[in-house]
Design a protein around this nucleic acid. Sequence first.
DNA 1: CTGAAAGCGCTTACAG
DNA 2: CTGAAAGCGCTTACAG
Lengths: 344, 344
Amino acid sequence: LRAVTIKDVAREADVSVASVSRVLNGVGRVGAATRSRILDTAERLRYVPHEGARSLITRRTDTIGMILPDLHGEFFSELLRGADAAARARGFHLLVSTSHGSVAEAAGAIRSMRGRVDGLIIMSPQIAPDPLALPDGLPVVLMNAPLGAGRSGVAVQNYEGALAMVRHLGITATRIAHISGPEGNGDAGERLRGYLDARPLDLGPDYVVRGDFTAASGYRAGLELAGLDPMPQAVFAANDMMAAGCIEAFAELGVRVPDDVAIGGFDDVPLARFLRPALTTMRVDLVALGAKAFERLSAELEQHGRDSKVDQVLPELVVRSSCGQGLGREQEKKCTTGPGRYPE
Amino acid sequence: LRAVTIKDVAREADVSVASVSRVLNGVGRVGAATRSRILDTAERLRYVPHEGARSLITRRTDTIGMILPDLHGEFFSELLRGADAAARARGFHLLVSTSHGSVAEAAGAIRSMRGRVDGLIIMSPQIAPDPLALPDGLPVVLMNAPLGAGRSGVAVQNYEGALAMVRHLGITATRIAHISGPEGNGDAGERLRGYLDARPLDLGPDYVVRGDFTAASGYRAGLELAGLDPMPQAVFAANDMMAAGCIEAFAELGVRVPDDVAIGGFDDVPLARFLRPALTTMRVDLVALGAKAFERLSAELEQHGRDSKVDQVLPELVVRSSCGQGLGREQEKKCTTGPGRYPE
DNA sequence: CTGAAAGCGCTTACAG
DNA sequence: CTGAAAGCGCTTACAG
């Protein structure tokens, strides 16, 4: 079951491989008779071109690599979905790889993509770009990373978003606690910084508990925060998953949300609106963000790396029930549920 | 900024490309002095091998293609995550593509993967394998599809799972309605068949409303079902997302779950345990399923297509609150929440 | 209009 | 131990 090559087609159709190549790619003049004979033969032999060989000579793979820290959770999958949609709209494939927060793995993934992709989208919030040993020839777009000088990228304005959320919670609360993301994560750092700058009151280190962006860590943080005296009146979690875990912990302890404590998250992953109470959060349009990363890379590909710039994305406050503010029952219903609210 | 090739290294190190190739791949005898000179030069030039060129001659890409209907929702992303983890554990890359339910797109994706992948994982629940024009040489594993004769695959036992769920709901309910998946979807069809065979009572066509696996369609179905007279005592939704939408509709209408109506889902996507009430569902270990698909393909790759078989996966009933059964408050807590229940 | 030839960047027998 | 050469499956000037 050897795969059939262009040579097989040429032999069967009694022409040169050059002619086969020409008609299959629709370039150059070929006689009508020859053309149809080639087409027939290709069809009969079920010939499919070897893309690897093509791209070796054409110097383009029509594939872009996407390196994510992980594939866990809706945050990454929405990003991936956005990038995939944009890529396929332009006829590109997506080669995915995960680094699991390890510099070595990320660097390995990057190396092994040489020659199979035209460019790279890298999300690596933990790692500065330099140690990644980014290859010279390869256009790269950084996502949410500590952006290197002269590198292109897309970035969420985490600081500004955190500011907005804490100010919103501050309308009704003075004692606002924070569940932060993991140490060394750039996004988490910026969200923490926003919190610190916007909180109405410094309550000491006990009111900032470190999580790792998982629901489990939010749950543990919730247990801790509920034990504090005085209890916080509001909690700003650095992402939605931790907010979800925190809500769960509070529910088990009988702490009522939002009556006893208001909660705000970050990201607006699809899960957020299904939580009870539905989660107030800073919406980042992850699908659009993924698409934007691809578009940036695509521009880079065409301009041959000349046009490096960073797209900033500002998250948007989405008020639902978990902060107990701003919306009467009727309005809230409109805002968080019902068919009209379902995306797509 | 031309990328550096093996020739550049050879020239700089004053050896043949053959020697460079040998030391970089660690095969064949090479003198110590030559070796270190080559290594130094490669490092200095920051040489990264062109994987495309390598795979053309070695006839392996160490990449597998995964074609999914969509990337929307946790169902697909968990599958992808499982496949990715298994693949990278064996040093393989993942090339993803989505077909959006279109035969043409799927066939196009398959074609364009020739020469860039060693094998294919295809999930195409809507489409029989034949029209996909599967290439001869390429090992393929089908997921959850109408499995073609002689093809390898992994399959969820949807019928048996539906049977189990409906029987469980049947413990307390006689009037059981169904929200089905989309027409022509193989999984949906099997789940419907299980429902029809296991329901205690045939209530007529009004009690089976068609959805499309989205929460929005579940929401609409919920509105319909709530208007029925007599109202169903239980609803079996063909997947969790539709169950989520249904719960939402019921909540808005003041229909209490599980007191007025019990609800059961299918899949156990991560969202399920965060719903309120937490969702009783048939657990399909999606990560394991994705991994299993890769393992199957991997076996195929080694055996050269000799060893075709189908792995069956039986879903498992997970009882939470939405069916109002079987668990006291204490037990339920254990089962659906708390740190112990957080995966990983 | 059509073909012979060179070459994309690599690996691997085959000589020496 | 080391190199020259062939070849993986294609495309593309260059001739004719």
